[in-house]
Design a protein around this nucleic acid. Sequence first.
DNA 1: ATGTGGTTTGCAAACGTTTGAAATTTTTTG
DNA 2: CAAAAAATTTCAAACGTTTGCAAACCACAT
Lengths: 344, 344
Amino acid sequence: MNKPVTIKDIARKFRCSPSTVSRALNNHPSINEDTRRNLQEYAQKVGYQRNQVSLNLLNTKTASIGVIVPTINNYYESAIIEGIDGVLHPLGYTLNICVTNEQYLLESEYITKLLSNRVEGIFLSVSQETYDFGHYEHLENVGKRNLPLIFIDRDYEGFSAGSVTIDDYHGAFAAVQHLVNTGRKRIAHLKGPNGMAVTEQRFKGYAECLRQYGLPLEESLIINTNFKVESALEPTAQLLELDQRPDAIFGVNDQVAIGAMKVIREKGWRVPEDIAVVGFDNSPISAYISPSLTSVGRPGRQIGEEAARIFLNYPDAAAKRDNPVHIVLPSQLIIRDSSAGIRR
Amino acid sequence: MNKPVTIKDIARKFRCSPSTVSRALNNHPSINEDTRRNLQEYAQKVGYQRNQVSLNLLNTKTASIGVIVPTINNYYESAIIEGIDGVLHPLGYTLNICVTNEQYLLESEYITKLLSNRVEGIFLSVSQETYDFGHYEHLENVGKRNLPLIFIDRDYEGFSAGSVTIDDYHGAFAAVQHLVNTGRKRIAHLKGPNGMAVTEQRFKGYAECLRQYGLPLEESLIINTNFKVESALEPTAQLLELDQRPDAIFGVNDQVAIGAMKVIREKGWRVPEDIAVVGFDNSPISAYISPSLTSVGRPGRQIGEEAARIFLNYPDAAAKRDNPVHIVLPSQLIIRDSSAGIRR
DNA sequence: ATGTGGTTTGCAAACGTTTGAAATTTTTTG
DNA sequence: CAAAAAATTTCAAACGTTTGCAAACCACAT
């Protein structure tokens, strides 16, 4: 862990000025050919690495941008990051990935850190806690700096910024419509945590679809989960013990749907014959489990790409704080075995 | 996107020196109470954020460390990152997560970037390409700087550095032993890409176990995959068309095992009655699919934690370049339905 | 007035690099 | 050989912050 070699060190060694070394290493034309070669060779030998920190200071820019997400352990989130990186990496930007673990405190801490590290933009998928408590003071300084802020996946209407989200509403609607069309009458919903936009939009799609098809919205058929597979177990068991058992379950995501399927099987019912199951995310595994899972696909990668493009167009009027762009990408129902077969 | 307020701006506004502003904002005792309050209030109002870049330069340290992984879209990798962060975040370190997507070029580029950004340590899980081509020139400058480098998950013997890995060998051995003990005679292996340590260690465990139990090692029963679920489909189909069909399949990871199960079902065979299946990773989903998947668990989080501890102890002799620490954590077989039932 | 002691503020240097302009050295030319 | 031109190198400032040390200011006692 020895000190990095600096341009000054090299200059001292060669009894020349730091300017000369700098120009030599940057192939500046006004440097003598021999000098250039000697300096470059020596720099290479001692493993000189230009100090980017000093450059960032000098240029007052960093070519780095912050990405704050609740979790990375998940197909969808990492697809978003890939999408952002795919657009921004070729342009020389570096991503600064921060994982909040759904905690407001960490989110706030990371915002401060990113601002203080002078990132040139922030992509934010707000944590569950932030949503729950609804306080957005940590974004104030982002506003004061007028730094490009783009909400990804989870939007927050209270703060005027660009956003790229999924049409959860229509995705959910399509899923439930599919269940209705295949003859299901009592469709339960394993809902996410109350208050979150994803959760509520999907719920809305579910509720509205039932309404349009004249089916009742029954409270006993709607139970909260927290997106994790385990959180579906108890609620599903509860559903199966109802006097009027559901004949379909719409899970807020694939994890929950998979958890539900497990319980259904364990209780001796069949999927899809007795109970159809539909998830949300179209995670890679959903096509390979048995029965394969019908699911609503979200174009995670595309979200990231669109968000990156908003960032790149930021100086444009359209993307500005007073009139932010909101992109809503469609989701797509992918029908598989877990909901197959028409019922009469 | 307006310029950040600096300490100089504030000083100009208040007709005082930058030193005074700096001290006031840092609650230095020698600052007049009124001055302090005024300056702090103003700084707060205009959203002043100290410029960490300049501080990093001044102190020639950054309290940030690089983490280079092939992918983050995966339970295991993200558990490792969580582990590292869990230990290092409370101490004020910031992680700089880089995803190589298994490409040597990106890995090399990130190493350079991290060095040049003056990170204080690097955690590296080498990419598949790096492994394949076996060139480690990109690590030379890390060596010259004598910067703490810790291999996580995938070790490379050619470069003297600390490492934390999994005992893949014994994990694989245990998995195959379990299959043998439950009466399986023709155990196939869906191997990973040749040359990678994980792949080869697991293969070794498989091969050695067969040898110890007097079972032949048949080439036709060993086929390569690339860890992804799709990559198991064709190889499994191939296995099922053999004259002497296998009665068990040991997959290099859960994804591959799940892919294999799908094909087995589609061809009309039963798991585990006709063919037992065992995976590797104990990914969260493995307990919830049907049949639930027997798998070898890897303590990802613990890997990250141990690696972080090596980093923290780096000045110690034990962790130094000339005598690096190598920690090998045990893996653990978790038996589920996909391999249940004894056969005679 | 002068000195003492305490409080508060400012100066200047430092971190590593780049870059316009000035200075120096080398080469060319008449 | 001197002058002009060209090639090469150095100087100094800048980015934003901190900090040891010196300076300024104030109140109060002599």
